[in-house]
Amino acid sequence: MPSVQAEVGGGWRPKQQQYPLEIREVWADNVEREFKLIRAAIERFPYVSMDTEFPGVIHHPPPSVHHSALTPPQRYALLKSNVDALHLIQVGLAFAPSASSPPALAFQVNLREFDPRLHRHAPDSVRLLAASGLDLPAHRARGVSARAFAALLMSSGLVCNPDVAWVTFASAYDMAYLVKVLMGRKLPRALPEFLRYVRVYFGNAVYDVKHMARVASAPALLGGLERVAAALRVRRAAGRSHQAASDSVLTWDTFREMARLYFPKEGSLEMCAGVLYGLELHDDDGRGTKPRAEYALLR
C-alpha cells in the first residue's frame, strides 16, 4: 500500500497506512478539531465514501405490495415518511486521494439526538447496532448535535464543492438523512425537488455502488454490501460491520475494485454517475437502466 505523503494543514500528516486503518471517533468534545482536519484534507483527498447508521425503518409498504413493485416516487414517499420521523445516529466518512487509491483517512461522527426510550425506532435494528458496538448512552451523553454537525459540514468544503466525488452503497436513505440534517427540516415533498437538493449539496459526481453493480450486470454482485464485497474478494479494512465509518471504508474499497474489474475503460464509469439506487426511472420503452433526466442528478 502506498504511503500518504501529502502534508495537511497545521503540520498534520497522515502516517503511512497499514491496515487496519485508524478510524477517528468524533464527539462533541473534539468535533471542532476533527473538522479542522477534514477541512485541511479535502484538497488532498477529494474522494469521499459515506455511510450512515439510523434506527431502522418504521413505515413499510402494504403487506400485499413488494418494495420492488413501488415506483420511484412511491419509494421516495416511503423513505420520506421514515426519515422525517427518525433520527440520524452516526455518519462515516472515508477519504482517498484518487479513485484508485486505498482510503487514507476515516472519521466516525457520533450524533446525540436519538434516545430509544423516547423516540420511535425499529427495535431489531437498534439491537443490531448495539450488538455491533454502538454505545447509545455515550451518544446521548457525548454526541455531536445535528445542528452543530450541519454547520460544520456546510463550512467543511465537503458539500457544495464540485471538486469532491462521493461514493455510497444503496444510498437513498444515507443521502436523505444528510439532506434533512443540512436543511434543518423535513425532506421536500416530491422526489425531483429532493434530487435537486442532493445535486446542490453533493454535486454530479455521486457514485452508488449498488447502482454500479446493476449496470455491470454481474449476477455475483447481487445483495448487500457484505455480499458484494465478498464476491469481489474485498476484505473489511477497519472496524466492525454496522458501524458507519467501517462500512464507508468497505464501500470505498468495493467501489474501486468494482471500477477496476467492470469499468476499466476511460470514461466508462461516468455512465453510473448521479443516480441513487432505487430512486431512478427507466426509459419509457423499458430499455436499460438509464434514468430519465428529471430523476437523475442532472449532469
Score class of each variant (00 low, 15 high):
residue 154 M to T: 07
residue 140 R to C: 02
residue 128 L to Q: 12
residue 133 G to E: 03
residue 152 L to R: 14
residue 139 H to E: 03
residue 147 R to L: 13
residue 132 S to G: 00
residue 152 L to Y: 14
residue 129 L to M: 15
residue 155 S to D: 14
residue 149 F to K: 10
residue 134 L to C: 06
residue 126 V to I: 10
residue 153 L to A: 06
residue 146 A to W: 01
residue 145 S to H: 04
residue 154 M to V: 03
residue 132 S to V: 02
residue 128 L to D: 07
residue 139 H to G: 05
residue 158 L to W: 13
residue 131 A to I: 00
residue 153 L to D: 03
residue 148 A to T: 15
residue 157 G to P: 12
residue 143 G to E: 09
residue 138 A to Y: 04
residue 138 A to L: 07
residue 138 A to E: 15
residue 156 S to W: 08
residue 139 H to W: 01
residue 145 S to I: 02
residue 142 R to L: 04
residue 149 F to H: 10
residue 149 F to D: 12
residue 150 A to G: 15
residue 130 A to P: 01
residue 129 L to K: 11
residue 132 S to Q: 07
residue 138 A to F: 02
residue 137 P to C: 07
residue 149 F to L: 09
residue 155 S to I: 00
residue 150 A to Q: 05
residue 126 V to Y: 07
residue 137 P to T: 09
residue 147 R to H: 12
residue 149 F to I: 09
residue 146 A to E: 14
residue 136 L to D: 12
residue 157 G to N: 13
residue 146 A to G: 13
residue 146 A to R: 07
residue 154 M to G: 11
residue 132 S to R: 14
residue 125 S to A: 15
residue 135 D to C: 06
residue 153 L to F: 13
residue 158 L to S: 10
residue 135 D to W: 07
residue 144 V to S: 09
residue 127 R to G: 07
residue 148 A to G: 12
residue 130 A to E: 15
residue 132 S to H: 10
residue 146 A to Q: 09
residue 145 S to V: 06
residue 125 S to D: 05
residue 150 A to H: 01
residue 151 A to Y: 04
residue 154 M to C: 00
residue 143 G to N: 11
residue 149 F to S: 10
residue 153 L to G: 03
residue 138 A to V: 02
residue 127 R to V: 13
residue 126 V to T: 07
residue 141 A to L: 10
residue 146 A to D: 13
residue 152 L to F: 10
residue 142 R to E: 11
residue 159 V to G: 01
residue 133 G to S: 06
residue 129 L to P: 08
residue 153 L to H: 10
residue 134 L to N: 13
residue 127 R to Y: 11
residue 139 H to A: 04
residue 156 S to H: 03
residue 140 R to F: 01
residue 128 L to M: 08
residue 157 G to Y: 14
residue 128 L to G: 04
residue 153 L to M: 15
residue 149 F to Q: 12
residue 126 V to R: 08
residue 143 G to Y: 09
residue 129 L to C: 04
residue 131 A to R: 07
residue 132 S to D: 08
residue 126 V to H: 08
residue 146 A to S: 15
residue 150 A to F: 02
residue 132 S to P: 05
residue 131 A to Y: 03
residue 137 P to V: 02
residue 131 A to H: 03
residue 158 L to V: 09
residue 158 L to D: 02
residue 159 V to P: 01
residue 125 S to M: 07
residue 154 M to L: 15
residue 158 L to M: 14
residue 127 R to W: 09
residue 159 V to C: 08
residue 144 V to H: 13
residue 159 V to Q: 03
residue 125 S to K: 12
